[in-house]
Amino acid sequence: MVFQFDDLKKKTILLFISAPLVGAGIGFSFMFFAIKNQPTLGETPWRTYLNIGASDESMLQKAIRTRVGIYALPKEEVIYFMASTDSDGELLTSDQRYEVSGIAPATKIWSITLYDKDFFLSDNALNRHHFNASSLNVEQGKPFSFVVSSTPEVGNWLPAPQKGNFALCYRFYLPPASAFPINESSLPKIKKL
């Protein structure tokens, strides 16, 4: 048997190039799988991430945060809740109308913003992308509601994109100490109409 040095060399070079690429590809898939399957808070449609800026964040957590919330602030400044489904677990879509309702939280600064499927603000004729305490004219501890729909609505209407899925981001600024741990039942409901 003749030793094929060139053949061995080629296989080794191929191994050194392909193996890290395969590993990176698995990393890429793993990150998106982890984002897609991030658990919601109990029975609510909301997901949150409270570890921003913490020293014990893992590399995976850092990469995920870069993907879904780059330049985010730590939880002492704002708590971010994201929902891409309604309260029944179905994806939010422009084909449906939704009512978002809840109790105004114990901070005067909060908002609920609509993002399109790529997490950009969606253009609309009203130039309206969110509701907050002042635009809903609601005081702390009082109930609020608004409708999300791609077609105009009477009253508090948050325009959805003309097509595709979308997501809502509930921001709770300067949360008081009493906001922790998160009370899941205090989070707004998203009900299909």
Partner: peptide, 25 residues
């Protein structure tokens, strides 16, 4: 040996992806 090296290199690629991703963004 090649299998072990391949596995280690793949693990390195996996880990490097997470380290590099924030810098890339």
């Amino acid at each position: 040996a090649r299998l072990i090296i391949g596995f280690l290199l793949a693990a390195l690629g996996f880990w490097s992806y997470f380290v590099a991703y924030p810098y890339f963004i």
